[in-house]
Design a protein around this nucleic acid. Structure first.
Length: 837
RNA sequence: GCGAAAGUGGCGGAAUUGGUAGACGCGCAAGACUCAGAAUCUUGUGUCCGCAAGGAUGUGGGGGUUCGAGUCCCCCCUUUCGCACCA
């Protein structure tokens, strides 16, 4: 038993703040350009200053911080900055609730969160902090907007857009979620409104966004983005409408199809009710019905209209078109199952090959013409068939292409269309342009002035920022609050000087977060959004970490933004972030999503007070697979606390010098001690290898468990009398350095105890010795017919013959052989012998 | 409906290329120390049979490949997530 006179007890409160202050004073985490070292730029998605740091913030930031610290010990020059995504709706909502100005609310929260972030013990370089609602920041957000505008990547158009009636603003398509098409923020179902809004041409980059070459992003995110972008290859085919009278000209209706091989089976056409040609082609006799249908369609919500289980409805326009391949006269209908927002808002209907068209044709008695011979099946009869047959196959009744197998030779079909001038190859995307106008107050003003003569004019660089006025009634009315300001709108046209008006919408806050990683490079730089020298040294971001919920929003926007800026000559490189990783979600102890209303929220501040930062850091890394998350378990944290207490208690209590114990001092146990020392050294090096591997691969839980295992081994070694040996000292030197990224305070305190001087955090990562890690003995598993029957301790270099001999010599093996002759003996070097009978 | 991921003890989770399933921790049980508790320490802990030795069984279910499968292949079930009349 250890003596009770010197209470050597771990009290995190006594050391953590002390070290945080000292590191800050020393500028330990200041990251500056240093061409002699390789840069490592690590970014975690910036937090929104909602008021209190919650456990989710810790979960996102701490393992990222630990990994950044590890990279630093590996010799990289690491920059790990932090900032605040400070514009946005919650500030306005909270401001309304508590009657404080959004700015005041936001900055008070930021101040509070800065304090909380400091208790986390992260290696943030605070000199690089950015705050997106600061005019120094949004000046450049506006500058980027004007650049995109000048490059024709920002444009204004009137279109039906998604409107959240609760947030009183438009939303981007990406911010409308789920079956009921609700607002991503407040869950209210959105409605459509026809509005004049600003868009970015994200669709220009659709194809490039589908390529993930050169970046290491999780499969999951790539799939989400790929599906979101929704590329389909096919053809545009043009149908001519039949002229109504001799004096009239025919119109062209363009359709997109992925199945040009079924063109001969197109027996009717369907236009979306909003299609611009509908009014023109509708005949007098059908007009009443058509208008009634359109009115009904308009009245319906998107949800109702787009419900897939609804029976299809439609109305004949009275007009006909000519199938450009077959020459057939086909009726033109309108139906709401055709969406104006996809393709050209018109389709060629092939009821034999498309289930939707089939149902529609059956309901309204339209012709069905089978043009694909299904492989290995009888030709469906158009009168009796009960479902469309969508597979490709050999084309029939298809003029010159009859006999072509479209499952193999689609190219021939497309070539034919092009040759005959019927259609042309085309690619269609689901992705839409990014709607960035918001009718809210707390955002970056869109830097545009509307002049009666010059039109929409971007505010010149030297007049930026267009500052957000503070004396505004920011209560949402459905109109942009800036519109209601008495004077702010009026401004001379930057081009001709006559009286003009400012744009009063603000930008989607995803615009702010599309480039914040560039502002960290040089937050005070005023000759551009970032200092090119800093950019050249640090970019691209080496690892980017954050939640996966942004896969189709922020993570698409920021990639678009980077590529657009590249093409505008603002920066270089194709991608902003090389490696992306997503943490999972911590649920409440009841396995439900944490929320105030459920009362299952875990408060980090209270945990820090009780256990200290290091314990929470270690627990967050240990308690679940980081990329997966898990329900919180408040008992589990005791285990990590116990571990750190045991580290503290085992650590020698005075500086380490030369070895004071050569391992032979203990009488009669010299041999045992020697093997213990070898085993200790081996375990230390093996742990080193696995810890390093796990840091590289974001496998944080096994880092902590390896360190726990090693500590257990060290406790056993102490009992064997190794204290004071060079192996023991090396174990501590390694242990504290391996611990430092995870539990930086205790590692520093103990390091200073043993090796007073430079911080543990400027030490280099221990050097691995393969020789030291090598096993001398292995457990040879003996199997009979694949079942484990016995185990033997043997030398690691045992050869095949010896191993087989040893196996057959085993009594237990013999018992299970039961006198039978081995038919085959399998030997896996270093692992097992399997005797097969 | 389409796409993706995941199913391992009471719980979180380990397990390079197919080669000792359940590391590490929580929880639980017994014990030590203590007047008692807390803390700490020791031991045990997948399931079933057995006093034990030992044996059987076991990674969502079923089949297959293999000397050998948590891992590879096929089918099915469940859960989570994303998209959804996308032409």
């Amino acid at each position: 038993m250890t003596e009770v006179t010197t209470p050597n007890v771990y009290h995190p409160a006594e050391i953590e703040e002390k070290w945080q202050n000292r590191w800050a004073e020393q500028g330990l985490y200041d990251a500056d350009i240093d061409s002699s070292r390789k840069p490592f730029y690590a970014v975690s998605m910036l937090p929104y200053p909602s008021g209190d740091l919650h456990i989710g913030h810790w979960y996102a930031l701490v393992p990222s911080d630990a990994r950044a610290r590890f990279q630093r010990m590996q010799g990289f020059n690491v920059m790990f900055p932090i900032g605040f995504d400070a514009f946005g709706l919650p500030a306005e909502n909270a401001a309304i609730k508590h009657n404080v100005h959004p700015k005041e609310w936001t900055y008070a929260n930021i101040e509070r969160m800065r304090g909380q972030l400091r208790t986390m013990g992260t290696m943030f370089d605070w000199r690089r902090e950015m705050v997106s609602c600061d005019p120094k920041y949004y000046r450049w957000t506006q500058w980027f907007f004007t650049q995109l505008f000048k490059g024709d990547l920002a444009y204004r158009k009137s279109s039906p857009v998604d409107w959240c009636p609760h947030c009183n603003t438009t939303l981007a398509r990406e911010q409308v979620w789920g079956d009921d098409r609700h607002c991503e923020r407040c869950d209210t179902p959105v409605i459509k409104r026809q509005l004049e809004q600003w868009f970015f041409r994200t669709t220009n980059y659709a194809d490039e966004l589908l390529s993930f070459s050169g970046i290491e992003w999780p499969e999951r995110v790539r799939t989400l983005q790929t599906n979101w972008i929704g590329r389909s290859e096919g053809a545009h085919v043009t149908f001519q409408t039949e002229a109504l009278g001799e004096s009239q000209e025919s119109d062209e209706i363009e359709v997109f199809t992925t199945r040009a091989d079924t063109l001969w089976g197109a027996t009717f056409m369907v236009l979306a009710p909003e299609h611009p040609l509908v009014d023109k082609i509708t005949t007098d006799t059908q007009r009443e019905q058509v208008e009634a249908y359109i009115a009904e369609a308009t009245r319906q919500t998107d949800v109702e209209r787009e419900a897939t289980d609804q029976e299809k409805t439609g109305v004949f326009t009275g007009a006909y078109a000519i199938n450009p391949a077959s020459g057939a006269r086909v009726p033109i209908w309108i139906a709401d199952y055709v969406l104006m927002t996809y393709g050209s808002g018109a389709i060629m209907a092939v009821p034999a090959g498309d289930q939707r068209d089939f149902e529609f044709a059956r309901k309204y008695g339209l012709d069905i013409s089978v043009v694909i011979q299904p492989e290995g099946e009888e030709l469906p009869d158009s009168e009796t068939m009960t479902a469309a047959v969508s597979a490709k196959g050999v084309m029939i009744h298809s003029g010159p292409l009859t006999g072509t197998d479209s499952s193999k030779d689609m190219d021939k079909v497309l070539a034919y269309l092009e040759e005959k001038g019927i259609g042309r190859r085309a690619v269609n995307f689901r992705l839409r342009d990014w709607l960035i106008s918001r009718q809210r107050y707390w955002g970056t003003p869109i830097p545009i002035v509307y002049c009666p003569d010059c039109g929409a004019v971007p505010v010149p660089d030297d007049q930026l920022p267009v500052e957000l006025p503070e004396d505004v009634d920011w209560r949402p009315t459905g109109e942009s609050p800036l519109k209601l300001h008495p004077t702010w709108r009026q401004t001379p046209c930057p081009q001709c000087g006559q009286e003009a008006e400012r744009e009063t919408d603000t930008m989607d806050t995803f615009m702010c977060s599309s480039w914040y990683h560039l502002r960290y490079l040089s937050p005070d730089y005023d000759k551009g959004p970032f200092d090119p020298a800093e950019y050249d040294y640090w970019m691209p971001v080496a690892t980017y970490t954050g939640g996966i919920e942004h896969a189709n929003m922020h993570l698409i926007y920021t990639r678009f933004f980077h590529k657009a800026c590249r093409d505008l000559g603002i920066l270089s490189g194709d991608e902003p972030m090389t490696t992306l990783r997503n943490q999972g979600i911590i649920l409440g102890e009841d396995s439900e999503k944490m929320s105030k209303s459920r009362g299952n929220v875990v408060a980090p501040d209270a945990l820090v007070e009780r256990y200290g930062t290091d314990t929470i850091r270690a627990y967050l890394m240990f308690f679940a697979r980081w990329e997966q998350g898990a329900p919180w378990d408040s008992n589990g944290i005791e285990g990590t606390f116990r571990w750190l207490r045991r580290v503290w208690a085992l650590c020698p209590d005075s500086p380490v010098g030369e070895a004071t114990n050569d391992g032979t001092a203990k009488d009669g146990t010299a041999k045992d001690t020697a093997s213990t020392l070898r085993a200790l050294k081996r375990k230390v090096h093996q742990t080193l290898a696995s810890v390093a591997h796990d840091y590289e691969n974001f496998e944080f839980n096994t880092i902590v468990s390896s360190l726990m295992e090693l500590l257990n081994e060290m406790y056993r070694a102490r009992e064997a009398g190794v204290v004071g040996t060079s192996e023991w000292n090396e174990a501590w030197s390694f242990y504290l350095r391996m611990l430092a990224p995870t539990a930086p305070h205790i590692a520093e305190e103990l390091w200073q105890r043993l090796w007073p001087g430079d911080s543990v955090h400027v030490q280099s990562w221990p050097e691995y010795s393969e020789e030291a890690a090598a096993e001398e003995e292995i457990t040879l598993v003996l199997q009979v017919n694949g079942k484990v029957r016995d185990r033997l301790q043997v030398a690691v270099d045992i050869d095949r013959d010896e191993a087989e001999k040893a196996a057959l010599a085993s009594e237990i093996v013999q018992k299970f052989l039961d006198g039978k002759e081995p038919r085959k003996v399998i030997y896996v070097p270093g692992r097992l012998v399997n005797v097969v009978v």
